[in-house]
Every structure is written in structure tokens, then in C-alpha cells.
């Protein structure tokens, strides 16, 4: 059996993560969260469309949420040891709700900006520049 698992283990041997034959652990989720977070940060930094920046923020929040859920999950812990339990999930729920609120306000600001300046390019928001 081990011999049959081995070929599949190449999927992520570099990081020392488990092969496809084992359920994922916390590290797997952390890697996903890290990638989402970095994508969001790069998105926020490079996009000039205000809505693109907003999407970057959503990605960053989502990456953080993945980490919270991973630490809260009883399934991902080896032997259920250091799970932070329900608190992680509760925080994830709060993050989702606050992200919705933040998106609503940011969108309203963007639309207002668009109404006043006829563009959504954040580089044009330089009226206060000395």
C-alpha cells in the first residue's frame, strides 16, 4: 500500500506536507490562506481601479478567515490537540459580517467618487495633494 501512495506524494513533497493519502492538516490550510493573503495584497497594491482594490481587500480578509477556520477545526488537528475551538469560527463569522459592511461603504464611496470625478481610477483621487 505504501508503495502505491508514494507516487502521489510528489504533489507536495517539498513542503513536507502529507501525501494525498492522508487528510489535510493545519499547515495545508495555512498555505492556502497565505496564498490568498498575498494575492490580495498584490491586488491592492497594483490595481488602479477602485473596485479592484476592493477585491484585493476581500481576498486578504478571506485569507485570514481560512487561517481562523483551520485553527478552529477539530478535524485538522492531529489528535485534536491544540484546536482553539469555537472561537475561531466565531471570529470568522464576525470577519465575514464586517467585510460585508466594509464592502458596502467602500462601494458607496466608489460610486460617489465616480459621480464626482467620472472615473474609478484611484490615482485620480488627488484633489487634496499639495
Amino acid at each position: 500500500m505504501t508503495a502505491m501512495i508514494a507516487p502521489v506524494a510528489w504533489v507536495c513533497p517539498v513542503f513536507g506536507l502529507g501525501p494525498l493519502g492522508h487528510p489535510p492538516g493545519v499547515s495545508h490550510y495555512l498555505v492556502v490562506g497565505a496564498i490568498l493573503f498575498v494575492c490580495g495584497v498584490v491586488c491592492m497594491a497594483t490595481k488602479r481601479n477602485a473596485l479592484g482594490v476592493l477585491m484585493g481587500i476581500e481576498l486578504v480578509l478571506n485569507g485570514a478567515n481560512v487561517n481562523f477556520v483551520a485553527f478552529a477545526s477539530p478535524w485538522l488537528q492531529a489528535d485534536g490537540a491544540r484546536s482553539i475551538g469555537l472561537d475561531g469560527q466565531a471570529i470568522a463569522v464576525f470577519v465575514i459580517v464586517l467585510a460585508a459592511a466594509e464592502a458596502a461603504v467602500a462601494l458607496a464611496i466608489t460610486l460617489n467618487f465616480y459621480n464626482n470625478h467620472a472615473t474609478v481610477d484611484v490615482d485620480r483621487a488627488d484633489d487634496l495633494k499639495g
Binding site: F15, G16, L17, G18, H22, P23, P24, G25, V26, S27, L30, V31, G33, A34, I35, F37, V38, C39, V41, V42, A45, S73, W75, L76, Q77, A78, D79, G80, A81, R82
Partner: peptide, 24 residues
């Protein structure tokens, strides 16, 4: 910068031994 940040985060994510063990 994103690459540097990603490297940092990945190192942090994989640095703790119990986290790397498969889940149950």
C-alpha cells in the same frame, strides 16, 4: 514584495511541527 511576503508566510506556516501532521 508579494513573493517575499509569501515566502515569509509559508516559512511561518510550515515551521510548527504539530501543524504539519495530517489531521484526523
Amino acid at each position: 514584495l508579494g513573493g517575499a511576503l509569501l515566502t515569509l508566510l509559508l516559512v511561518a506556516a510550515l515551521s510548527v511541527e504539530p501543524w504539519r501532521r495530517p489531521g484526523s
